[in-house]
Each structure stands twice: as structure tokens, then as C-alpha cells.
Computed example of a mutant assay.
Amino acid sequence: MQLAFFNTNLTKESRRKAEKLMSSYKNIEAIIESKKLDLEPRMTANYQASESQRGNQFHSETERLAIANQEIEEYVITRRKLSLVYESLKKEQQEIWEQRYIQGKYDTDVYSDMGLNEKRYYRLKGEMIAVVADALNLI
């Protein structure tokens, strides 16, 4: 049985989400560490209103910590998936990802720097975005 080829015809929304995640690939680790630091206990006095003075809010510190831990776990999973996808790409596609989405260069600068013609560049880039979108269930 033959494997199905990736569908490179993505919706604008899924393409935009995939490109946004690719752009934030290097920053996700900093976000994870920042959120972990927010969870650490503080040793200073906290002059926050007591539970009886908060009004009609339904949350507790335990609930806040559980939600924050869930957010961190989602970032960790996304980072792992992006790393797996990045490592599985062709060298040219990794270079496109680096230059276009991490360094923020324009498409024309990237394909001229790499010595690729425009058609090949956009084909490689489209395949790369389709792989990212499929791996992150954005399709």
C-alpha cells in the first residue's frame, strides 16, 4: 500500500498558524522557563486580599497552578513536535525555516542567498509548512 502524499493545499488559517508556530520555535523554550518561574513559591509577604474578600470569583491557588501546569505541558508538547519536524526536514528546508521564520528575512532574500530559483523555493517552503501543519493537527 502506497503512502498518501502531503496535501500542500492548506487553508489560509492553518497556513498562518503553522507559520506563526515556526516563527516562535526558538522562543518557546524561553516561554516555558518563564512560566515555570512564575509557578515557584515566593518567600516574600503577599498582601493580597483574603478569599472572603475577593467577591464572587470562583478560583483557588491550586486551580491556578493546575491551569498553569497544563499550559506549560502544551508548550512542551508543541516544542517537541516542532523539533521532530525540524529534524526530519531536508537541509534546504531547515535553512529556509532558519532564514525566513527565525531570522525574519524576506522570501526574495532567502532564495537568492540560497541560490534557489523562485519555483523550487516556494515548492520546498510549501511542503515544509504542510508538514508542520499536519504534525500539529492544524489541517
Rank of each mutant, 00 (worst) to 15 (best):
Y86L: 06
S24W: 02
L124V: 04
L3R: 13
S88H: 10
K26Q: 13
I96C: 00
M114R: 01
G104N: 00
N46Q: 08
G104R: 00
K17P: 03
K125E: 09
D107K: 14
I96D: 00
S34M: 07
Y101A: 03
Y106F: 14
A135T: 12
K20A: 09
A68W: 04
M43W: 06
S50H: 03
Y47L: 13
Y121A: 11
S34R: 12
V76W: 04
M22H: 05
Y75R: 12
T44P: 00
N56G: 05
K26M: 12
Q103S: 04
Y122H: 15
N9H: 03
V131S: 10
L65S: 10
M114E: 08
Q103H: 14
K105W: 09
R100Q: 07
A66I: 10
H59S: 13
Q94I: 01
K12E: 14
L37D: 11
K91T: 11
L116E: 10
R42Q: 04
Y75M: 07
V76L: 05
N9G: 01
F6E: 02
V110M: 04
P41E: 11
I102R: 14
L10S: 01
A18C: 01
T11Q: 01
Y75A: 06
K17N: 05
K36M: 14
Y86V: 07
G115W: 06
V76F: 03
Q48T: 12
R123S: 08
A18P: 09
R16M: 12
L84N: 11
A18W: 04
D134H: 13
L89N: 03
H59Q: 07
S60N: 00
A66S: 10
G104Q: 00
G55W: 01
K125R: 15
E127K: 15
E33T: 05
L82H: 09
E92D: 06
D109F: 05
W97Y: 01
Y25D: 07
K81E: 05
I32Y: 03
S34F: 08
I32M: 10
S24Y: 09
E98W: 03
K125G: 02
D107Q: 06
L138H: 09
K20V: 06
Y106W: 08
A30T: 09
N9P: 00
L10E: 02
E92R: 05
E71V: 02
D109I: 08
K91L: 14
E63P: 02
Y111E: 06
